[in-house]
Design a protein around this nucleic acid. Structure first.
Length: 182
DNA sequence: TTCCTGCCCT
DNA sequence: AGGGCCGGAA
């Protein structure tokens, strides 16, 4: 959950050192619940979107008081945690509880948009057709859902990149409608 | 310039 | 449904 808070609209490579710094200072949920928000804010400053800093402490306090420090395992409960939205809830369900949760982030949306040749632009994450494709994809997963999740995200971040996608090393180029069209 | 493993508020 | 947030890397 901590990692996903930091990864919102933020590149994974930038998150790594900040994540380490935060966990060094607040190694468990109890210490995080007592954190000084100004101190948290200072640690995550390089990531921007500073309003996120309050979420770490609030989420920790909430989980301690409502669930005796145990992260809940249903989407409904997860969404009530401060700072947790559809995406973070889905990741927690998939990664921590091995559930086939529909997950749509900008990486997954980009891959689906290109592969299926949907030609959508802008904030495609909230497009209904994209969400339906993602739901369908995860519902058909026959392995650990988190493996599918990480595979798509890593593929997207490393090969199916936002600018100048690396078609030359893409194993899906023969089936990809974006590539076929070119 | 563009975009990043979104959430929150209106 | 849509806009704001934000630093930083490519």
């Amino acid at each position: 959950m901590i990692a996903e808070f930091m990864l919102q609209r933020t590149k994974a490579n930038q998150v790594v050192p900040v994540y380490d710094n935060l966990l060094k200072k607040y190694p468990d949920i109890k210490s995080l619940s007592k954190a000084d928000i100004a101190e948290v804010s200072k640690i995550i400053r390089p990531l921007g979107l500073h309003w996120r800093s309050a979420h770490f402490k609030k989420a920790a306090e909430y989980i301690i008081s409502e669930y005796n420090s145990n992260i809940p395992s249903t989407r409904e409960e997860l969404l009530k945690i401060p700072g947790v939205g559809d995406y973070v809830a889905g990741v927690i369900l998939a990664v921590s509880f091995s559930k086939k949760a529909p997950i749509v982030d900008s990486n997954i949306a980009r891959v689906l948009n290109r592969y299926f040749g949907m030609d959508l632009e802008g904030e495609i994450r909230r497009n209904k057709k994209i969400v339906e494709k993602a739901d369908e994809l995860f519902s058909h997963c026959i392995y650990e859902p988190k493996e599918l999740l990480f595979a798509i995200i890593d593929f997207s971040a490393l090969v199916c990149t936002p600018l100048n996608p690396r078609h030359e090393i893409c194993p899906f180029k023969d089936e990809c409608k974006l590539y076929i069209k070119k």
